[in-house]
């Protein structure tokens, strides 16, 4: 077993563990902290896949901005009551997830994957190449994404504003 395999298995085990903690912790703040850990681990996996730029964006946007937003809302609403240990949908949720995981794993492991990957050039995953494809082939989606973010900002302000009669 090579060192890259060992690093991958370590990251994968930690990622599955922190994802399980997101779902099964009863305290919401603990869930958010576990999600931060999971997002960091995914960012490290991105870097090992030669996507350093996307990994940095993941840490900045997800672990930085979005999780701070989540924590602000948790602190603002302060839901003190812990939810019941097992709701009505517990068994149903487990069954659905097991079926989904089994189907996905069966599908994925039977697939013929390219074992010998494309030899990555020096520029692959660098900010230059990401920006080049973003501003040449994907200009229209880029502009649409900026309009979408503007609409989201306006929508969030309108929705969360206190109503005055």
């Amino acid at each position: 077993m090579t060192s890259s395999m060992m690093i991958f298995y370590l990251l994968a085990a930690l990622l599955v563990l922190s994802s399980l903690m997101v779902v099964f912790q009863r305290n919401v703040v603990h869930c958010a902290m576990a999600l931060v850990a999971a997002l960091f681990l995914i960012a490290i996996l991105f870097v090992t896949l030669q996507a350093a730029m996307v990994g940095v964006l993941q840490i900045l946007v997800y672990a930085g901005a979005i999780m701070v937003l989540f924590l602000f809302v948790i602190m603002l609403l302060n839901p003190t009551a812990l939810e019941p240990r097992r709701g009505l949908s517990w068994g149903f949720g487990m069954l659905v997830a097991l079926l989904l995981a089994g189907a996905l794993a069966a599908l994925v492991s039977h697939n013929e994957a390219p074992a010998d990957p494309f030899a990555a050039t020096e520029l692959f995953g660098a900010p230059e190449s990401l920006a080049k494809s973003l501003f040449t082939d994907f200009v229209l989606p880029f502009e649409i994404a900026s309009v979408l973010l503007l609409i989201a900002i306006v929508g969030a302000v309108v929705l969360a504003k206190r109503e005055h009669n």
Partner: peptide
């Protein structure tokens, strides 16, 4: 590649559990 896909499927299924339960 399969290892990444299986890991990703597992994380997705865990997310589905969270949404349902």
């Amino acid at each position: 590649l399969n290892h990444y896909l299986i890991l990703s499927a597992a994380i997705f299924a865990i997310g589905v559990v969270g949404v349902v339960i």
